[in-house]
């Protein structure tokens, strides 16, 4: 992770670390560190414990270790395969459109134009909004009978009958992904635009002098130059989208009949509706495990690609 190590190296001038300086530094750091230990790292450990326990919120007297039972129950759950498949579709289809649209918009916004500040401010809006509330907004837009989308599509003559957006599993997945693309493009515009502005103009001028056309410039000069940033933001975004049940929670609550659940919205359901905190924790651990393994392969794959010079 080039960017991360870059952030870590950019520290101040080195000085011999005396004990008193170190104590001072620790005193400054202590309050933040204590909060993080209690509210971020301790919960991770507790989740590991809960994941191997029989733990129902309303039956707290009957708590005990049950080995891998929670994991077995999850894997044998008839919903499990579909939830995994939905998560995979949700993450990669959303990511594909967020990335390509975000990249395209960033390229168009690279050269400053009049009112670019206002434009940026406006397309920046989704970032500031609650995923849950926007889920409600999209639920209203996708409403089968009174939703504006079906109405507009009918009036434009693009469909003959109303699409059952939220009462059919496949249309439901399409609907939540459309909303998610709406929500997440901003992130890529901002990050990619910042990266594009770091590409030295001399490199672009040189490419132009060498007779490179626009696509050659893009794929042979610009993308290789911002590659490290792209790899990192895509990875962060994959993790983030996986753990983003808010939109789905607002739009479909995983319905109809669990058809639009992804792993994280299913976790919320286990936590709230079923009050089965052992299962919810096991599911959380599985998510972390899958993301961890994915990250290792992802980093290996992107590194290999670099070495072979593609």
């Amino acid at each position: 992770m080039d960017l991360m190590s870059a952030t870590m190296q950019g520290t101040t001038r080195k000085r011999p670390a005396s004990t008193s300086r170190m104590l001072k530094a620790l005193a400054f750091l202590a309050p933040a560190a204590v909060m993080i230990l209690i509210f971020v790292f301790y919960p991770v450990l507790r989740t590991v414990q809960l994941g191997f326990q029989n733990f129902n919120l309303f039956d707290q007297l009957n708590v005990g270790y049950n080995g891998l039972q929670n994991f077995r129950n999850l894997i044998n759950d008839p919903n499990f395969d579909r939830v995994l498949k939905n998560t995979f579709i949700w993450v990669f289809v959303s990511l594909f459109f967020q990335f390509t649209i975000g990249f395209g918009l960033a390229l168009l916004m690279k050269k400053k134009f009049k009112f670019i500040g206002i434009y940026q401010g406006l397309i920046f809006i989704p970032w500031a909004l609650s995923g849950f509330l926007m889920g409600l907004v999209w639920k209203w837009i996708f409403d089968e009978s009174f939703g504006v989308l079906n109405d507009a599509l009918l009036k434009l003559g693009l469909i003959d009958s109303r699409i059952p957006w939220l009462s059919n599993g496949n249309w439901g997945m399409a609907a939540v992904i459309i909303a998610n693309v709406w929500y997440g493009v901003t992130f890529f515009v901002i990050m990619i635009l910042a990266a594009l502005q770091g590409v030295p103009t001399e490199m672009l001028e040189a490419a132009e002098l060498d007779g490179a056309n626009r696509f050659q410039t893009l794929f042979q000069v610009i993308i290789p130059y911002i590659r490290a940033t792209l790899i990192l933001i895509v990875l962060l975004r994959i993790m983030w989208i996986t753990n983003f049940p808010d939109l789905i929670f607002g739009m479909t609550q995983g319905g109809p009949a669990g058809r639009t659940h992804i792993i994280s919205s299913w976790l919320i359901e286990k936590l709230t509706l079923d009050a089965d905190w052992g299962a919810a924790s096991a599911l959380g651990l599985m998510t972390m495990g899958i993301l961890f393994i994915f990250t290792i392969f992802y980093l290996m794959a992107t590194r290999l690609e670099k070495e072979s010079g593609v």
Binding site: I36, V40, P43, V44, L50, N243, I268, L291
Partner: peptide, 13 residues
């Protein structure tokens, strides 16, 4: 901490 999904902290918290 940025890699830890916030959702897993719900029950422990």
């Amino acid at each position: 901490t940025q890699m830890i999904p916030g959702l897993i902290a719900l029950a422990p918290l």
